[in-house]
C-alpha cells in the first residue's frame, strides 16, 4: 500500500498563447488504502492533479513521493514501468481501445508489462468475471453500454493489481444508476484489495460518502 506525499506541487502549461496556472502549490498526503474524493469546480486543476499523481504529466515544480521515493527523478523508461505496475487509471470517457475486445483491452496492461499472453488472458477473464462482464468478453467497446465500458476500464486498471487507482470523473458520463454501480465497484476494489482510491468527481452524493474529501479551487487546496 503506497503512501503518496505531494510536496509544493506547481503546474502551468500553455494552452494556445495563454498560460494556464493549473496547480499553485499543493501539499497533500494520501495514506495507503484510503479512499479520497477530489472535488472542486471545473478548471480547478483536478484532472491535472490526477495526471501528475499518475505520472503521465510532470509537475513544473514540486515533488511526488510514493513511499518516500521521488517518482519524477526516474528516467522516462523507469517511470513508464513504474506507472504500469503501480497506477491504474479510469477516465471519464472510458478510453478503451476501440479495435480490441473487452478481453483484449483488459489484457493490455499485462501485455505491456510482458506477461505471457495465455496468463494475461486468464487473469483478464477472472477480473472481468469479477466486475460482472463474464458474458461480454468478446464484445468490442462499440457493442457495450456506457456502464459496461466503464466496467471494462475498471477491470483493465486492476489487472496488474496496482497500489493506486486514479479515477477521473468515472461516473460523470453515466446515468445515475449505472454510475452508482461503477462507484460501488470501485469502492469494493478499494476495500477488498486495499487499493488507494482517488476519485475526481462532480457528484456531491458520491463525494459525500467518502471519508475524506479534498477541495480544490484555482489550483489550491481549500
Amino acid at each position: 500500500m503506497a503512501e503518496i506525499r505531494v510536496e509544493n506541487l506547481l503546474k502551468s502549461y500553455k494552452q494556445g498563447s495563454r498560460r494556464v496556472e493549473a496547480l499553485r502549490g499543493i501539499d497533500l498526503v494520501f495514506n495507503g488504502g484510503e479512499p479520497v474524493a477530489v472535488i472542486g469546480p471545473s478548471g480547478a486543476g483536478k484532472t491535472t492533479l490526477i495526471h501528475i499523481l499518475g505520472t503521465i504529466d510532470r509537475p513544473s515544480a514540486g515533488r511526488v513521493l510514493y513511499d518516500g521515493r521521488d517518482v519524477f527523478a526516474m528516467s522516462d523508461r523507469d517511470l513508464a514501468r513504474f506507472r504500469n505496475r503501480t497506477v491504474g487509471f479510469v477516465f471519464q470517457f472510458h478510453h478503451l481501445l476501440l479495435e480490441f475486445t473487452a478481453l483484449e483491452n483488459t489484457m493490455m496492461p499485462a501485455l505491456i508489462q510482458g506477461v505471457q499472453r495465455r496468463e494475461a488472458k486468464g487473469r483478464a477473464q477472472e477480473i472481468l468475471e469479477e466486475v460482472g462482464l463474464g458474458d461480454r468478453m468478446t464484445h468490442k467497446p462499440g457493442e457495450l453500454s456506457g456502464g459496461e465500458q466503464q466496467r471494462v476500464a475498471v477491470a483493465r486498471s486492476l489487472i496488474l493489481e496496482p497500489q493506486v487507482l486514479l479515477a477521473d470523473e468515472p461516473t460523470g458520463n453515466l446515468d445515475r444508476e449505472t454510475g452508482e454501480g461503477v462507484y460501488q465497484l470501485l469502492q469494493q476494489m478499494n476495500r477488498e484489495k486495499g487499493i488507494t482510491l482517488i476519485i475526481v468527481t462532480h457528484n456531491e452524493e458520491i463525494a459525500g460518502r467518502l471519508p475524506r474529501r479534498i477541495h480544490l479551487v484555482d489550483g489550491r487546496v481549500v
Binding site: A80, F82, N84, V87, H95, M108, P109, I112
Partner: peptide, 11 residues
Amino acid sequence: AILKSMGATTS
C-alpha cells in the same frame, strides 16, 4: 495516450 497511461514506453 491511453497506451502511455497504461505504462507503454516511448520506444
